[in-house]
């Protein structure tokens, strides 16, 4: 028999309404409120404890509340942690997300919650966990618990959880290929979408355009003639023996190569290992991707102060954003340590 623990707020924990929203966390053996229905819906799983915490307490004393609850869970057998459903109660949704995230990080167990799409908890936590799309009022309790239990049962049995639309959870920013059950080929989907679009009827794209992610503009270098510049590239320029074994596509590795005493990169000493384009030009003259020759001259002319002793290389093609982020984070400390002021990135 697997074990589950359920988190609810003061209202669903039957302590009281708004006047009890400041209540500190408490843990009870057995099932209170929604936990009773979870006990019915979960397969081969016992709901051993119910944790109750006031929404205001969790909101105003977050760290303390989280620490207290994690302490309560310490040493307890637990295969899954469930919070809510939180419906359209704003503070409750944030509380559910907060505690689920903490429990998942600390104990490594799967967590599931539920909230209405109009609540702040959704955007804050949807990438971190399964959040079922919940109703707006508590009368949806039965169906929201059922939807949570449906996903929870799969997690408990180690079965794959289906896609967001089928299972009814908020998409987590993860896209994978799936085989359509009825095998409908692309042509049929294409004709269907085409006719609807031509006839002004609603249609549904299979690739909704994601929102673009922006970073604030870093301030300009104030004193360029004394600034230190570093050169990075995703064009795969490496010494000919590729000492860091950087992959020619879907790269997970990067390298840095000393150019302190190099006036220009020479063909035969450096080459590109990038597989996404014709390498002939860059193999013959690597400076066409990593313009070390031009930078050395510009430095001598006083356009900028000095060049960081190393240039940095990886391969851009097919490389995931997560890998690119990680590699950048590994490179940044070297730049900081050497007091680099600005960076040139050449992408192919």
């Amino acid at each position: 028999m697997k074990k589950a623990i359920v988190y609810v707020n003061q209202f669903f924990g039957q302590i009281g309404g708004e006047e009890k929203a400041g209540a500190a966390p408490e843990i009870h053996e057995g099932q209170i409120g929604p936990a009773m229905q979870f006990a019915k819906e979960l397969e081969d799983t016992e709901v051993t404890h119910t944790i109750i915490c006031g929404d205001n307490y969790m909101g105003s004393n977050t760290d303390e509340a989280v620490q207290t609850i994690l302490g309560m869970l310490e040493g307890k057998e637990m295969d899954i942690f469930l919070a809510g459903p939180a419906f359209q109660a704003g503070r409750y949704t944030v509380a559910c997300g907060t505690i689920c995230k903490a429990v998942k990080e600390k104990f490594g167990v799967p967590v599931v919650t539920s909230m209405n799409e109009e609540t702040p908890g959704v955007d804050m936590f949807k990438k971190e966990m399964y959040i079922l799309k919940g109703g707006n009022i508590a009368s949806k309790m039965r169906q929201d618990v059922k939807a949570m239990a449906n996903v929870a049962n799969k997690l408990l049995k180690g079965e794959p959880v289906g896609d967001a639309e089928t299972e009814g959870y908020f998409a987590r920013g993860i896209r994978h290929q799936v085989w359509l059950e009825d095998g409908t080929p692309a042509t049929v989907r294409m004709i269907d979408m085409l006719l609807k679009k031509l006839n002004g009827e609603p249609f549904k794209t299979e690739l909704p355009m994601p929102k673009l992610d922006r970073v604030p503009i870093a301030p300009a270098i104030k004193d360029l003639p004394h600034a230190k510049i570093a050169l990075l590239n995703t064009g795969g320029i490496v010494p000919v023996d590729n000492p860091d074994h950087i992959q020619s596509a879907s790269a997970t590795r990067w390298g840095r190569y000393n150019i302190a005493d190099t006036e220009a990169l020479k063909g035969g000493e450096y080459k590109t290992i990038h597989a996404g384009f014709d390498p002939a030009a860059a193999d013959a003259n690597p400076n066409v991707i990593t313009p070390v020759d031009a930078l050395k001259v510009l430095q001598k002319e006083g356009v900028f102060g000095s060049l960081h002793d190393y240039f940095y290389t990886t391969v851009g093609t097919g490389t995931t954003e997560a890998e690119a982020r990680r590699m950048a984070k590994e490179i940044i400390p070297y730049l900081k340590e050497d007091g680099v002021d600005g960076v040139i990135m050449v992408s192919t």
Partner: peptide, 27 residues
């Protein structure tokens, strides 16, 4: 990568041919 470097506070310039890609990525 460009965004991570910029997030760390370094001004960074991306030299590339596919301007629409750099714009989409957020350089």
């Amino acid at each position: 990568m460009v965004k991570e470097v910029e997030k760390a506070g370094f001004p960074i310039v991306q030299m590339c041919n596919l301007i629409p890609v750099a714009k989409t990525v957020g350089s």
